[in-house]
Simulated scan of single mutants.
Amino acid sequence: MIRVLVVEDDPLLAAGHAAQVSAVPGFTVAAVAGSGREALAAVGAAGAEAPIDLVLLDMTLPDVDGLQVLRALRAAAVPADVIAVTAARDPAVVRQSLSMGVVQYLLKPFTAAALEERLRAYARFRADVAAASGEFGIDQQAIDEALSQLRTAAGPARGVAAPTLHAVVVALREAPAGQGLSAAETAAATGLSRVSARRYLEHLTTTGRARREPRYGGSGRPELAYHPTSAL
Score class of each variant (00 low, 15 high):
residue 168 V to G: 06
residue 188 A to W: 11
residue 173 R to C: 06
residue 172 L to C: 05
residue 10 D to V: 12
residue 167 A to Y: 04
residue 12 L to I: 14
residue 14 A to Q: 00
residue 15 A to M: 10
residue 133 S to P: 10
residue 79 P to E: 02
residue 162 A to R: 09
residue 176 P to C: 04
residue 174 E to R: 13
residue 191 G to R: 04
residue 18 A to D: 00
residue 139 D to H: 07
residue 167 A to P: 06
residue 199 R to I: 05
residue 183 A to N: 00
residue 170 V to M: 09
residue 112 A to R: 13
residue 132 A to Y: 07
residue 138 I to F: 08
residue 95 R to H: 09
residue 190 T to F: 02
residue 187 A to M: 07
residue 22 S to T: 08
residue 121 A to D: 05
residue 79 P to R: 03
residue 194 R to D: 14
residue 177 A to E: 14
residue 192 L to M: 06
residue 44 G to F: 11
residue 102 V to Y: 01
residue 86 T to M: 03
residue 50 A to T: 09
residue 199 R to N: 09
residue 99 S to M: 13
residue 186 T to M: 06
residue 71 R to Y: 08
residue 184 A to L: 10
residue 98 L to S: 04
residue 23 A to E: 11
residue 41 A to C: 10
residue 203 H to R: 15
residue 28 T to C: 13
residue 1 M to V: 06
residue 113 A to G: 13
residue 57 L to D: 00
residue 72 A to C: 04
residue 140 Q to L: 15
residue 84 A to W: 00
residue 70 L to R: 00
residue 200 Y to Q: 09
residue 142 A to D: 12
residue 206 T to E: 15
residue 221 R to F: 14
residue 129 V to C: 12
residue 169 V to F: 07
residue 226 Y to L: 06
residue 153 A to D: 14
residue 8 E to Y: 01
residue 139 D to N: 10
residue 232 L to V: 08
residue 38 E to R: 07
residue 31 A to W: 01
